[in-house]
Nucleic acid binder design. Structure first.
Lengths: 120, 120
DNA sequence: TACCTTGTTCGATGTTTTACGAACAGCGAA
DNA sequence: TTCGCTGTTCGTAAAACATCGAACAAGGTA
């Protein structure tokens, strides 16, 4: 019934440093953030990660609950995007610093997107 | 015998983003980092945190293993300090961004030092 | 030497996290 | 309506984590 509980996204004030750090303490999630770092909204199906879909769903929820991403549902499919402006407002400099290191170390390398670019 | 295994500190190359983020995903550890953020070396006994000493020891080890702090042993007591330069070299901007937010949100507020300033 | 102080290590425990496959629910298409 | 596709939720299991008290080890002190 209330299966898709219309995903609640935390407001700026609800985001906590500890939750964000926790969300970014997993390589898969860092990989997802990196994929979304180009600012483009991505379809769930575009995302590739070496885990079962239920696990991927879990990771996306952790990111969303921490306030890192925004999920939009359109009919049957979901789209995810990085809440870059919100993050920069709430945690100035943090996201950029993390992305910079993640890029340099190639953290979350096995996370990617299908080259099936049918959007944007 | 080898109780105090002379604490190994990871070199710059051994530090990982994920480990650092994990280390900073606990309010007590963030509080410890805040306390050390003034650059002063602190004695173990100076640190106050609302946990048992064995737990505090554990948290200090997590921080040390992630490369955030350096521990020095002098006779019977230990001294801890933040590896600020190393962190800035390895993760540019990250520590400052975290400290800034932690200060603003007062993360790890119940962690402090005894005003027993008998050092420096 | 016998004791005390200091911090680590050792279990033990309860909680949280990660992971999977299966079942389910919503939506669109046949 | 009946399928099929998509993503969430559930049940479960394994691993990691936070926490404590007790035991221990190393160094200083009496």
């Amino acid at each position: 019934m209330v299966t898709v509980k219309q995903a609640r996204h935390p407001g700026l004030e609800e985001m906590t440093l500890v939750a964000v750090m926790g969300a970014l303490s997993d390589p898969i999630r860092v990989g997802l953030v990196r994929v979304l770092a180009d600012g483009r909204e991505r379809g769930w199906g575009e995302l590739r990660a070496p885990v079962a879909k239920s696990t991927l769903s879990h990771h996306l929820r952790v990111l969303r609950d921490a306030g890192l991403t925004r999920t939009r549902q359109e009919g049957t499919r979901c789209f995810v995007e990085l809440r870059r402006e919100d993050l920069n407002a709430r945690f100035p400099g943090l996201l950029e610093a993390v992305l910079e290191v993640a890029r340099g170390d190639d953290v979350g390398a096995h996370v990617g997107v299908t080259d099936d670019s049918n959007r944007t």
